[in-house]
């Protein structure tokens, strides 16, 4: 539409714009008075109605059959917009890639599927260890599941140890959802974070992160999941976290070779910052 108008008027020295009109103002005023009559006096409504009618008809005639337009002359040449000109600024360039700048970083990332696979592998490893604990110590497959879902279900949170060893549909459902959700999320996180710490992904993803996570939970588990907090065997817990970390980290790092700057600063690997030309490293 704009382009047509442009084509139509090129070189004519004026540009057509919608012409000013009082009718919208009158219509709006009438409409307001129409409502104001409800709280003042019916006569106000009537006046409003008449105004609205006039405004509406005026507006109608303004746009039908063809909307009125006026031709606005172009401003004097001296007052017209100047063309945007190249600026002398230099733009710092990047070392990466052939084109210089503006790429999305880092250049090689794990596909999302790596994170999902890693999460699944880690989740299986973790669940296997937790179930092993349940069978060995409490002779129950359901015990670890119920303890996990006690984070969200008060009836399980207040249950006795014997009750926790029993099967609970609610517990199984919530437990599986929570476990799958966390496994996938953490797996994805590994896939995006590991390239930022490329030197020893196995140690970081497999050992450091699970231990940090365990430590963090140790401080707040009493509120997040009091039932688990009372009964937790920290050794087994940390072991299952490690199992997750090692399995997920292993699967993720095997998906594809990590291709990122091995000697660059963290911010560069995180994709927050780029290395400048002048440093000329590597």
């Amino acid at each position: 539409m704009a382009a047509e108008r442009e084509a139509k008027h090129a070189g004519e020295g004026g540009i057509e714009l919608p012409s000013p009109t009082p009718w919208p103002l009158l219509a709006a005023f009438g409409m307001t008075l129409g409502f104001a009559g409800l709280v003042t006096h019916p006569i106000v409504s009537m006046v409003g109605g008449v105004c609205f009618l006039f405004g509406g008809v005026g507006w109608w005639r303004e746009v039908l059959p063809v909307a009125h337009e006026i031709e606005v002359p172009l401003a004097a040449p001296a007052r017209r917009a100047r063309l945007v000109e190249p600026v002398p600024e230099t733009v710092d360039h990047l070392e990466l890639g052939e084109g210089g700048h503006r790429m999305r970083l880092p250049t090689h990332v794990f596909p999302l599927s790596a994170g999902i696979r890693g999460g699944i592998a880690g989740g299986i490893a973790m669940a296997a260890l937790a179930e092993l604990y349940g069978l060995l110590v409490h002779q129950s497959l359901w015990y670890p599941v119920n303890l996990l879902s006690a984070a969200a279900i008060p009836s399980l949170a207040n249950a006795s140890t014997e009750q926790l060893a029993q099967f609970s549909t609610e517990g199984l459902l919530v437990g599986v959802i929570v476990h799958v959700l966390f496994s996938l999320l953490v797996g994805l996180l590994y896939a995006v974070m590991l390239p930022m710490f490329p030197r020893h992904p196995a140690i970081l993803g497999g050992i450091v992160a699970p231990l940090l996570w365990t430590g963090l939970l140790w401080t707040s588990l009493g509120v997040i999941n009091p039932a688990l907090n009372e009964r937790i065997a920290w050794g087994w817990f940390a072991a299952s976290q490690l199992a997750f970390g090692l399995a997920a980290g292993f699967v993720v790092s095997k998906m594809e070779r990590i291709a990122t700057l091995q000697s660059a600063a963290f911010a560069i690997r995180a994709g927050l910052e780029l290395q400048y030309d002048e440093e000329g490293k590597e």
Binding site: A2, P18, W23, P24, L25, A28, T32, W59, E62
Partner: peptide
Amino acid sequence: ARDLAFPRLNAFGYWLFLF
């Protein structure tokens, strides 16, 4: 663009808000 899609409706909207 040179204006909104419905310039008169735009004026109507403003005056309704003000009133």
